[in-house]
Design a protein around this nucleic acid. Sequence first.
DNA 1: ATGAAAGCGCTAACAC
DNA 2: GTGTTAGCGCTTTCAT
Lengths: 344, 344
Amino acid sequence: MNSDPLHSGKRPLTLRDVSEASGVSEMTVSRVLRNRGDVSDKTRAKVLEAAKQLGYVPNKIAGALASSRVNLVAVIIPSLSNMVFPEVMTGISEIFDDTPLQPVVGVTNYHPEREERVLYEMLSWRPSGVIIAGLEHSDPSRAMLEAAGIPIVEIMDVDGEPVDAVVGISHRRAGREMASAIVEQGYRRIGFLGTKMPLDHRARKRFEGFTQALAKHGIEVADQEFYSGGSALAKGREMTETILKRTPDLDFLYYSNDMIGAGGLLYCLDKGIDVPGQIGLAGFNGVELLDGLPRRLATMDAGRIETGRTAARIIAEHAGQSSAGAERVVLTPQLDFGDTLNRS
Amino acid sequence: MNSDPLHSGKRPLTLRDVSEASGVSEMTVSRVLRNRGDVSDKTRAKVLEAAKQLGYVPNKIAGALASSRVNLVAVIIPSLSNMVFPEVMTGISEIFDDTPLQPVVGVTNYHPEREERVLYEMLSWRPSGVIIAGLEHSDPSRAMLEAAGIPIVEIMDVDGEPVDAVVGISHRRAGREMASAIVEQGYRRIGFLGTKMPLDHRARKRFEGFTQALAKHGIEVADQEFYSGGSALAKGREMTETILKRTPDLDFLYYSNDMIGAGGLLYCLDKGIDVPGQIGLAGFNGVELLDGLPRRLATMDAGRIETGRTAARIIAEHAGQSSAGAERVVLTPQLDFGDTLNRS
DNA sequence: ATGAAAGCGCTAACAC
DNA sequence: GTGTTAGCGCTTTCAT
C-alpha cells in the first residue's frame, strides 16, 4: 500500500543531467531555469534546449528544502459537495493565478479531528500560508495555527476570535437581518428548516441571530425541522411537507440553505400554495441555481467569491512573513427579496 | 508577491530540537515519529512527550527528499463548478483515507495549456501517481505523463488511447444507448441542447455516438442549441424556449447535462407541455439534484464515485511502481428512464 | 557571467 | 535498541 520506489528503469532526471547535456555548470542551469541572475543569451539557449530535449522537470522538493521557500497555500474547507466551497476556491484561484502561489485543498467533512489531521499534514509541507474555513477549531488545531509562523486567514465567518486575519460575514447578523425583513413584511408564524449538523457553526450562528431578532419582536419560531444526508432538494420537499402538516398555520419558512429552500419552493408550487401570499420563503447563500427556478427564492448572498479573492490577496501580500497582520475584513451579507418575501 | 522568508522570530522546529529536548539521537527520534524499527517504550514515550511539548511538526520536504517517497497523488480535473468532479473527488478521498496517500487537486478550466502548466507544477513535486480526467492532452502533457515514471490513471472516458491505466465509461456508447432508447419509445423529431465547449471531449463524444445511432435509424438531429456561461438551470430554460420556438414540432430534447435538462423540464412544466407525451426529455450524469424535481428527468449515470474509487485503488496498488500496469476498467453507463422518456 | 563549496532537514544503510 | 555517516537535488554564498 505504501510507496516503495523500485527506481524501476529510468531514474528521474536531475539538474546534473541537464548540466552534462548542455556543458554548463549545474549552478548556471539552475539560474536559467529560474530566470535568476545574469546569464548570457547563448548559454541560456543551450540550457533551455537541453532541458526541453531531456524533458527535465525540476524537483521542487529539493528546491524547497534548499531555499526554504514553498509556494503552496493550504486551503482547508469542510466539504466539496456544497457548492459554496468550490465557489470560494474559484475566488482564491483567480487571485493566485497572477502569483507564484498555488492552493492545495484539504477537506475536513466538518470533523474537527479530521481538520486536525489535514492541517498537520499540510503544515508538514511548510506552506506559505493557510486559508481555513471557520473560527472554531480544536485546541491542537489552534495551537498548530498559532505556532506555524505563517500568514493564516480564517474565512466565511467573523463571529469569534481569529488566530490571525479573518474575512467573511457575520452569520449572526445575517440571521438577524433576515428575521427583521420577515417580520417587517408582516409574517408572524415562522418555521425554521435546517441541517442536523451541530458542527456547522455558521448555520448555528445564523439560527441564533434569527431567533434573537424575532424575540425582540416578541415572536418565537413556531416549529422547526432538521434533516441529514440525501439530496438537499428532495429533502427540502419532504421537510416542507412534514412541517406544514404538523403546523398548518405557518406563514413563513426560513431554510438554512438555498438547496432545501428550492425544494420547499417547488413543493409549495406543486401544492398550489400561494407564495408569498399564504406562505413566504427564504433561503441562504445566493446560489446560482436559484436563477432557473420558476420563482426567485429570497436569499442572502454571503459573497463567497469575494471572500476567496480577499483571503488570497491577504496571503499573497503577506507571503514570506510570519503572519497576515491580523487583518479583519467584514463583508456585508446582501439580502435579496426575490419573489418569495414580499407580502404586498 | 513571492515568498521571502524573514525567518522572523521563531525558526521552525527541527528534529534536532526534539532530539535535544528529549536527549535521544535524531535518528531515534525520527524512528519514533514514523513508527519505524524497534524503539523501547521508554524512549518512545520521552520522544513523543518532547515533540508534543514543543509542538513539532515534521518537515515532509526534507523527509521526501531523503527518502524519495512522496505520498501525494496529483488529481487533475477540468473544473470544480460542475458537481461531477467533486463527486469523483469523494470517491478518491474515500479510498485514500485508508492509505498514506493524499490527493492534491489541480484545476484546468478545460484549457490544454492550463493543464500543461498544472501538470508540470504537480510533477515537479514528484507525486506517487497521477489521476487525470480525459484522454485528450497536448503533446507536451502526454510526453510528461509518459516520462513521469509513476502510475497514471486517466478517468471518465475510455474512447481513445490511454497513457497507462484508464477508468471510465464510453461516452460514445452512452450517446448511442440514449439514442436507441429514444427511438424505441417512438420519438422521431429530436433536438440536442449542449454546452458551447469544443474542448469538452466527453460531451462531444456523446453527441457523436448519439447522431451515429440515430443515423442507423435514418434519423437526423432536427435542431440544436448551445450555450456558454451563466446558471445552467436558467440557461436550460432559455435554450428550451428558443429551440421550441424555432422548431415547434420537436418531440424529444436531449441535453448534454442534467442541469440544463432540469431547466428544460421546469420550463416545459411551466408551459403546461405534456412530458413525456408531447415531448420527451433526457439529460446526462445522474446528479442528485434530479431527485427533488417535480418529475424525474431521464438520465444516464456515469458512475463518478465508482470511477474515483477505482482510480484511487489502482494508484494505491501501484504506488512506488513506475506505472499502473495499463489497467483498463470500463464502467457501464446506467440508463435511468425516470418519468420523461417513456411514451406509453 | 560563471563556477565551487556548503548545507537545507531528514532518512537509508550500516555500525555498535 | 540506538547512534553515526553520508547523501537526497537543489539553492545560497562567495569566489573568480
